[in-house]
Design a protein around this nucleic acid. Structure first.
Length: 246
DNA sequence: ATGTCCGTAACCTACGGA
C-alpha cells in the first residue's frame, strides 16, 4: 500500500492542487497538516474517507484513507489544539501530527512545543511497537545538521536544538524507524522550503516532515514528491510518499 | 534570507503566524 504525508498550508487554498496530486499519486492513506479549516472540503468520488480535526484559522490535521478508517482519535492529553488525529487504516495504524513550531528560543511557545512532544511520546504507550503503525507529519525539527541547508544559519534558533532533537529521538526509541526518503533533487531529502528569496529554486530547504514507522511496516521505497512543491499555488512543503508492505 | 503566502477582520489594507 502507498502512504503519504503533506503539510498543505491550507486545504482551502490548496484544493485544486491537492485533488490533482491525489489522482496522480494514488495514495491509499494520506496524512495532512495545516488544513486551516473547520470543515474539510469534499474530495469527490475518489473513494476516500476523511478524519479531520480543525477549528478554523490555525493548525488542522487529517487522515484520508481508501482502505478503511476506524478508531478515529484526535485527542492529546492536555493539548486541545487540533494538531493530531489517528485512525486504523486497514492493516496499519496511522497518526497525522503537526508539532508546534516553537517560534523562538525563550518564547513560551518553545516550551509548549517540548511539552507537546512529551505528550505525543506518552500517547504512543497505548500502542504496541510490534504492531504496524506510522506516525507522520510536520515535526518542525531538523534531526541532524544535514537536514538544513546551512547549519550556521540556524545557530540560536528553533528546530535544531538538542532538546528538540532529543524529543524526536524519544519517539524513535519507543520503536519507530525514521524512514528517510529519496531526495527530489540534490543530496538532501528536504521537505520544506520557505516561499521567500527563491529558497526552493536554490534548494535551501529543511527536512522537517517525517515518516516514523514500526518495523512491522516493510518500506519498499520512499521519496520526496518535489513536483508538488513547484509552480503557482504550491504549499511550502512537499509530500513524502512511501510504498510499504504490511 | 526576512524577498511570500495563508486566513482573518474589516474592509480595498494590515496583521499574526509560519
Amino acid at each position: 500500500m502507498r502512504l503519504a504525508t503533506w503539510n498543505v498550508n491550507s486545504i482551502g487554498a490548496r484544493l485544486p492542487r491537492f485533488l490533482e496530486w491525489l489522482e496522480l499519486a494514488q495514495p491509499d492513506v494520506v496524512a495532512l497538516q495545516e488544513t486551516k479549516t473547520a470543515t474539510f472540503p469534499e474530495v469527490g468520488d475518489l473513494g476516500y474517507e476523511v478524519a479531520h480535526s480543525g477549528d478554523g484559522r490555525w493548525n488542522g490535521v487529517a487522515v484520508l484513507s481508501r482502505v478503511g478508517l476506524e478508531q478515529v482519535d484526535a485527542t492529546l492529553d492536555g493539548h486541545p489544539e487540533p494538531r493530531i488525529v489517528s485512525a486504523q487504516c486497514g492493516p496499519v495504524h496511522v497518526t497525522s501530527v503537526y508539532v508546534p513550531n516553537g517560534r523562538a528560543l525563550g518564547d513560551p511557545h518553545y516550551d509548549y512545543k517540548l511539552a507537546w512532544f512529551a505528550a505525543l511520546r506518552e500517547r504512543l504507550d497505548r500502542f504496541d511497537p510490534a504492531q504496524p503503525l506510522v506516525v507522520m507529519g510536520d515535526f518542525n525539527v531538523a534531526r541532524t545538521d544535514d537536514d538544513v541547508w546551512d547549519p550556521a544559519a540556524f545557530r540560536g534558533s528553533t528546530h535544531v536544538t538538542p532538546a528538540e532533537r532529543a524529543a524526536m529521538d524519544a519517539l524513535v526509541d519507543w520503536g519507530l524507524v525514521d524512514v528517510v526518503p529519496r531526495p527530489g533533487k540534490g543530496d538532501h531529502p528536504f521537505t520544506y522550503w520557505d516561499y521567500r528569496a527563491g529558497m526552493f529554486h536554490k534548494d535551501m530547504g529543511m527536512r522537517i516532515d517525517y515518516v516514523l514507522a514500526t518495523r512491522a511496516v516493510a518500506v519498499q521505497d520512499a521519496w520526496v514528491d518535489r513536483e508538488a512543491r513547484k509552480g503557482k499555488g504550491a504549499s511550502d512543503h512537499a509530500p513524502v510518499v512511501l510504498d510499504v508492505e504490511v
